[in-house]
Structure formats: C-alpha cells, structure tokens
Design a protein around this nucleic acid. Structure first.
Ligand SMILES: Nc1ccn([C@H]2C[C@H](O)[C@@H](COP(=O)(O)OP(=O)(O)OP(=O)(O)O)O2)c(=O)n1
Ligand SMILES: [Mg+2]
Length: 707
DNA sequence: GCGGATCAC
DNA sequence: TATGGTGATCCGC
C-alpha cells in the first residue's frame, strides 16, 4: 500500500483546505457542503466567522473538541506505524472478500427517488410574504438559523449558523421567526402527493422523503394518457403576486379542477394517445367553462395542462410539478437504484432540479469514483477529517485504502465504507418503526441557583409527560441532559423499574439525577445554559400493548386464582408470586420519611435476616418490585405483545397463551433477588454487574379468557 | 447498559 | 449580547 507516500496524508493543508486564519479550526469553518454554496470566498467568510467567535466560550469548547479529534488522529497514526506489510496484505484480502460479497448484493432492479424541498422553511416564508422576494433571508433568530434562502447562501449564510454571524456576513439579511405549524401543514400537503407514487414512502423529515418508484413505473407504462395529465399554473404570471391575491383561487388545481376535466366528455374523447390529448390541450377551446373554483368560488389563476410521459424522468418531473402546483414551493429530486445514491442526486441539481443515475454499474461507478465522501449521508465533518488524515477524500480513495480502513475501523464502519465505495445502498424504503426515544430540551440564559435548576427540571418533566401522554407512550429510562455555560454536555440516566409517563415519577428520577450533578459539583455552583429530559425504552400505552404493571393488573383481575399472579395484600400494590420459589415474593416500594427513594420487604414477606434498607428501588405509581421487573420485563413486554396479538387475532374466547419470563438478579441465600442500597451509583453498578447471570427462566401456562 | 460523540435535518 | 431542538446510532468501557 502506498499510503505512506500519499502526500495528502502528510500535508494538512491539502486535507483541510487552505485555512483563512492560522487560528481557525476545521470544525468552526464554514460548512459549504450544501447546495447553493459553491464557489464562495471561504477565506473571507471564515475570517468573519473567526472574528465573531474567537472570544466566545463556544469557540473555546470547539477548540477542546478539536484537540480531542487530533488525539484520535494521533492514535490512528500510531496504529498505522505498527502495521506490518503482511497484516496489510491480509487486510486487503479480507477487504476484497467483503467487496465480492457486496457485489453479489448489488441490486439494480429498484428505482429509488429522493425528494427534497428547496430551502424549505425559507421558501414557505417567502411564499407567504412577497416582500421577501429577491432578498437574502433566513429563518431563525439572532441566536440560531434554521435555514436560509439561496440568495443568502451566496453570502455564506446557512442553517446551523447563529443569526448574528449571518448578519455580519450579510448585513441586509432579513430574519424571520419560524412557524413550525405552517411547515407541518405544508409537509402534509406534500406527502399527499408523494403517497400517490409510493404509498409506502419513507419520510425523513418535514421536507424530504424516499420513494420506491418501481411499482409506479410498471403501472405507468400501461396507464392512460389522461392519468398522466395534470394541471399546472402558468409560469411568468407573477405567481407570487397572485398567491397573495385574495380574489384568486388558491386551491390545489389538481384537486379541485382536474377531476372535473377528467370527467368531461371532451377530454375523454381526446384521451386516446398522448399526442391527441396534447393537441387538444393546445387548442383554444379546451378549458372553456372551467373558470371558477367549485370549492372557493373564486376565479382560477391562469393555468395549463400537461401530459407527462412514461419515463422515470417524466414521472418525477410530474411529481415535482404537482408539489409546486399544490404548495407553490419547489422540490428537487434524485433518481437512482438505491437510497444512498438517490440522496446525493437530489442535491446535484438543486434548487428545482433533478438528476438520475441509470441502473447500470458502469454509470454508478463513474458517478461515485470522484465523489467526495463528504457528500454521502452519514459522513460528516469528523469522519471526513478522520479519513482525510489517511488520504481518503473521494469514494475511489475508500477503495484504494481499503486495507488500511479495514485495519483502522470497526467492522460496521468498514462495511459501510465499502458499500459506499462500490455505490451500493439500500434498495428498500421501509419506514422507521416505532420511535425509540422522546425528549425535550431548552436553552436559557445561565441558571445556577439549585432551586431554579430544579424548577426548570420540573417544567421539562411536565412537558415531556404531556408529550408522552399525547403520543400514548410509556418509558423506562430517564436521561437528564445538561450543558454547562462552558458548553460541556453531560447526560445522566436512570432506568425505572417500570414503564411510566407519570409526571411525578419522571420528575423524581430527573431531579435525583440533577441533584447528584449539583452535589458532585460542590463547592462550585452548577452553571447551566441548557437542560433536557429524555425517555427511552419505550412501549405503547395502547390497549394492545400495556405496561408490565398494567398488564398484571388486568391479568390479575382476569385470571384470579392463577398460580403465577396474585393480588398484593395492599390494594395499591401488585405482586407476583412465583411458583418455582426462586424469584422474590412481595416487595413494597415506597418513599421514606425524607421522601427519599427506597423499598422494603412487604410485611407478608419472609424477611429473615434482610435489613429493610438493603433493598433499593424507586417509588412507583404502578408497582412491581424493581428486583423482579429488572430485566424480566423486556421478556414480559415481548410476550405480552404476543399474547395480545393472539388475543386480537382470535375471535374465539378460550385460547391458551404462554407466559414466559426470565428473571435476572443477584440472589441471596433466601432466594430473594435484591440489590443493596448504597446510593445511586452503587445501585447502578450492582444491578449491572450482578444481574448478568440468568437465575431462572421458566414457562407457565394459563387460560386466556375474553371478558 | 451508560455516557460521549457523531450525524441528519 | 448572542451558537437550537429532536431523534438515531455507534463506540469504548
Ligand atoms: N441544521 C438544520 C438543518 C435543517 N433544518 C430545517 C430547516 C430546513 O428548511 C429543513 C430542511 O432541511 P434541508 O437540509 O433540506 O435544508 P433546506 O430544505 O432548507 O435547503 P435545501 O435546498 O438545501 O434542501 O430542516 C434545521 O432546522 N436545522
Ligand atoms: Mg430541503
């Protein structure tokens, strides 16, 4: 391998590009990896960014992170020095094996389309305020910009840049506050169009989505010309003014007008072929009588109809035109055999353009080889720099340096990089499953007073609890996120023994985590600029999938007398009695006199020599002993889902289900599973180290009765 | 499993 | 004066 002789690997200038200021760092420099930012005077722009940032705490922190990155690169370099030629040859053979396998995986039979709105938030604001036309503008405030229009991008103003820097780069920049409700509504309209080309399309955000066009194209070949005819508003009719004109119909003409056209006998009479239909559309009389909107009773804007062809390009052009007709916003699109390439393509002719890579290996490779890796979704600033330091800039370099990459990176990273180098990506556009976490966080001017910090925490927990109730979701792991005034970010998490979205429970856990942080900072105050709360390990709060405790409550009622489940003597508590006697029996979970968290054995329990305070848990609204639920609940959750699934599917009433669970925990001589209480840290440590062993796993049967 | 880091949008 | 919010994933420990 000639990595040692690669000049780029040895010359930081060639890797990072010319730096504007000697003190400028790469992670602070203008990120011009975005459409509409080609050919900017980076030197000048970076100088302005540097001047505006150099004395800030933010910049200090960025420098710290940059140093860490340099360290990583150092480690990488020392790894490289230790490699033997033999190792490298072996690595290359392994890499080639992987590449051969990947080649078999190549699938060119799908047509994937990535649709991405142009300057989305900014475009919506400009559409709704004609005075913004021809002005550089950005959505956001002095603190942060969400995006900018293409005019502002010419000044280096872009998303994720603070507004005050944007103003320094472009003094005429107009800032507009975001209106998220509006963007959500527009997004809904866009998705209505997308769904007509692929009902299973995969939205990635409000403004972009992947579609599998394969089926649509198959059907399209055999479709009637009329089904490919759509209404378009005429260009050059000062669309922006008409959009603000209250007397003109603003409805989606393809919703209000097109159905009427398709029904008219004249249109049907001329719809035999694309040519006859187009000729009819060109004639004077074609739209006579279609002047007023039946929905809003206003006069239609000037419009035409167009018959779109059967090719992919025509189909995607049709889709984009329909989005524009419906929303008065433009979209760009990429067409390729897989999602990775489609995503890159949608950026190529932005704004308001599209680009296609034909489903042919040679075409793909000629597109990919000289493509900078930074263009690929998933490769950001850091990965770019990490790979840059070993001489990798383009996708071709990924192949050239495959042996080194094999040696330096994890297996998953390596595979990812090899797929990129071969132009291979996902050919299906499945929607993400259920969400895995839900969170809320807020930046504020410095707070250090513990009372106020706890109050902020309360606010966040209230919000999160409400959001979770709206989403009908429960969670088990609470994570507190804080950012100090020095921009240092910390997260601290705690896994509850049970699923919940209860505000008080959330608050207790989050405040405990916060208190620990405040305490650990003493005698210095904890000075924060951001706080956030997140819930993960979620489950749905639907009837079909309930929390473990709720499930037990239901089952307790339903299957009274069952050997596995038994009501706790205290009606506020539920317990599990295990017939095999290895698992714990009853435990109360409660708060002690300090309102601190604790748990104790139930009076009915066989206490023996156990010290009350030696059992630790969290107070719960729904109660099972944490020791019992710990680890076993996942299993339960899974099984309860199965049970419910069967229950749902079954119309009969006497089905038999299998309840299976595995319980892990530390086992005392009395057979109880418990964790000693020595504070939170110890609890976490213990519960991790001592629960790694499965103590009991069993299967029991019980009758499943519909009410 | 936790915490830090990276990434997308 | 001033550097976001939400969600996902990966890695090292
Ligand atoms: N760091 C970011 C990036 C984006 N967005 C929001 C604002 C954007 O309008 C929207 C879509 O993101 P895109 O990356 O698609 O950017 P745009 O649509 O604004 O511009 P482009 O024309 O490059 O797609 O998401 C954001 O809030 N914060
Ligand atoms: Mg966009």
């Amino acid at each position: 391998m000639e990595h040692g002789s690669d000049r780029r690997a040895q010359n930081p200038e060639l890797v990072a590009g010319p730096s504007s200021s000697n003190n400028m760092i790469s992670r602070m420099a203008l990120n011009d990896n975005k459409a509409g930012m080609e050919g900017l005077d980076k030197e000048r722009i970076n100088q302005i960014i540097f001047e505006a940032s150099k004395d800030s705490k933010f910049f200090e922190n960025e420098k710290k992170k940059e140093e860490q990155l340099e360290l990583r690169i150092q480690e990488q370099q020392s790894k490289i020095l230790k490699i033997t030629q033999a190792q490298l040859r072996g690595a290359e053979r392994e890499a080639d094996k992987v590449l051969t396998l990947l080649e078999n995986e190549r699938n060119l039979s799908h047509t994937i389309v990535h649709v991405d709105m142009d300057a989305f938030y900014a475009a919506v604001e400009m559409r709704d305020d004609p005075s913004l036309q021809n002005k550089p503008m950005a959505v956001g405030g002095l603190g942060m910009l969400s995006t900018s229009n293409y005019l502002a991008r010419r000044f280096g103003v872009r998303a994720a840049m603070p507004g005050f820097i944007g103003l320094k780069l472009c003094p005429d920049l107009v800032l507009v506050q975001p209106n998220f409700d509006k963007y959500t509504a527009v997004s809904k309209e866009i998705r209505q169009v997308l769904a007509q080309y692929d009902p299973n399309f995969c939205p990635m955000s409000l403004d972009e989505a992947y579609l599998d066009f394969t089926d649509h194209l198959k059907n399209r070949c055999e479709s009637l010309p009329l089904s490919r005819m759509f209404v378009l508003q005429e260009k050059n009719t000062e669309c922006d003014k008409t959009y603000g004109n209250k007397d003109v119909c603003l409805c989606d003409l393809n919703s209000v007008l097109r159905p009427a056209l398709l029904c008219s006998s004249e249109f049907r009479d001329h719809g035999a072929s694309d040519e006859t239909l187009q000729a009819f559309l060109n004639s004077e009389s074609s739209f006579r009588g279609f002047d007023v909107c039946s929905e809003c009773n206003k006069i239609f804007p000037r419009y035409t109809c167009k018959v779109f062809g059967c090719s992919v390009e025509d189909a995607v052009l049709e889709l984009r035109n329909r989005i524009e007709e419906k929303t008065h916003l433009t979209a760009s699109a990429g067409i390729a055999p897989n999602t990775m390439l489609a995503k890159v393509c949608s950026d190529k002719n932005k704004p308001n353009g599209q680009y296609r890579i034909k489903p042919d290996k040679a075409e793909i490779m000629s597109f990919v080889l000289d493509l900078p890796i930074r263009k690929i979704s998933g490769i950001g600033k850091v990965t770019e720099k990490l790979l840059g330091s070993i001489g990798v800039v383009t996708c071709r370099d990924l192949f050239t340096h495959r042996a080194m990459i094999f040696h330096l990176f994890s297996s998953t990273s390596f595979h990812h990089f090899m797929r990129i180098s071969a132009g291979i990506g996902s050919t299906c556009v499945e929607r993400d499953g259920e969400r895995k976490s839900i969170s809320t966080e807020r930046t504020f001017s410095e707070i250090s007073d513990p009372k106020l910090l706890l109050q902020k925490c309360r606010e966040l927990c209230k919000n999160l609890s409400e959001d979770m109730k709206d989403e009908k979701t429960l969670g088990k792991t609470v994570t507190l996120k804080i950012k100090t005034v020095e921009f240092e970010v910390r997260t601290r998490s705690f896994t509850l023994p049970d699923f919940t979205n209860d505000e008080a429970t959330l608050l207790k856990a989050a405040q405990m985590l916060l208190q620990t942080e405040i305490t650990s900072e003493l005698p210095r105050p904890l000075r924060l600029r951001l706080m956030g709360v997140r819930m993960s390990k979620l489950c749905s709060d639907q009837d079909s999938q309930v929390s473990v405790a709720e499930m037990f409550k239901k089952m307790d009622k339903k299957y009274q007398g069952d050997q596995i489940l038994k009501a706790h003597p205290n009606p506020d508590f539920l317990s599990v009695q295990n017939t095999q006697s290895v698992l714990p029996k009853y435990h109360n979970i409660c708060t002690d006199s300090d309102n601190d968290l604790c748990a104790e054995h139930c009076d009915n329990c066989d206490d023996n020599d156990e010290d009350e305070s030696s059992i630790f848990s969290l107070p719960l609204d729904q109660t099972l002993s944490s020791e019992f639920v710990d680890h076993s609940c996942n299993k339960f959750e899974q099984e309860s889902f199965d049970l419910n699934g069967r229950q749902k599917d079954s119309s009969s009433s006497g089905e038999v289900g299998i309840l299976k669970f595995a319980c892990k925990g530390s086992r005392a001589s009395d057979g109880k599973v418990h964790v000693r209480r020595k504070g939170l840290a110890n609890f976490l440590e213990k519960s991790q180290s001592e629960t790694s062993e499965t103590l009991n796993c069993e299967e029991s049967h019980f009758g499943l009765q519909e009410n």
